[in-house]
């Protein structure tokens, strides 16, 4: 008997599916929405949104007295005094017991109110933004893409990506959205 791979590919060949025609792409690839729409739509998910000009000042206001995970590569002036910054190496238990995590992001999407992390500098490996119950994410206005297609163009699919649209939620009870399950229950977005 042939191995599974050979047999499945033989079955596919035997099905003789005719080539499909060209793919129409008449949908909008760009959008008009900017930072304002992004802020509005992130807030729709019950995330907390701030437009800030002085990031360190805002961070001081939000984080002083807390134990916050700081991935490598954050701007030095964000690591304000009065916060206990937790840096790698961190165990799963360390992350679980942290009060929160501070990151930047790789891109954001106005149409859908989404931020995207790509585990780059200032974000760290994926677990860092998953286990702490509170996530503060700083988004630069030039990082906000209007549409999903524009955002995907900016991203490298070979990096581990996490698209985040609001705090963790579920619709599993009577199909109504409830915020706060396994992922961070509080998402605070700073737009600068």
């Amino acid at each position: 008997m042939a191995d599974a791979r050979t047999e499945i590919l033989n079955r596919i060949r035997a099905a003789k599916v005719a080539p499909a025609g060209p793919t129409p792409r008449d949908y909008r690839r760009t959008g008009e929405g900017g930072v304002e729409l992004f802020a509005e739509r992130v807030a729709d998910y019950r995330a907390i949104v701030h437009a800030v000009s002085d990031v360190p000042a805002k961070l001081r206001e939000l984080l002083v007295g807390k134990r916050i995970v700081a991935p490598a590569g954050l701007p030095a002036d964000w690591l304000v005094d009065g916060v206990e910054w937790l840096t790698e190496p961190l165990s799963t238990e360390d992350l679980d017991q942290a009060d929160g995590v501070l990151t930047n992001c790789a891109a954001a999407i106005a149409d859908t109110g989404t931020i995207v992390l790509d585990a780059g500098a200032g974000q760290g490996r994926r677990a860092l933004t998953l286990l702490p119950d509170y996530h503060v994410c700083v988004v630069r206005t030039d990082q906000v893409a209007a549409s999903v297609p524009e955002a995907l163009e900016r991203l490298d699919p070979l990096r581990p990506l996490t698209f985040i649209s609001g705090p963790s939620a579920t619709s599993d009870i009577e199909l109504n959205r409830v915020e706060g399950v396994h992922g961070p229950r509080t998402l605070e977005v700073l737009i600068t």
Binding site: R159, P160, L161, T162, F163, I164, S165, G183
Partner: peptide, 11 residues
């Protein structure tokens, strides 16, 4: 929803 809360992509 406009977007689900989390989408993970890995390679």
């Amino acid at each position: 929803e406009r977007m689900n809360p989390y989408t993970s992509v890995w390679t």
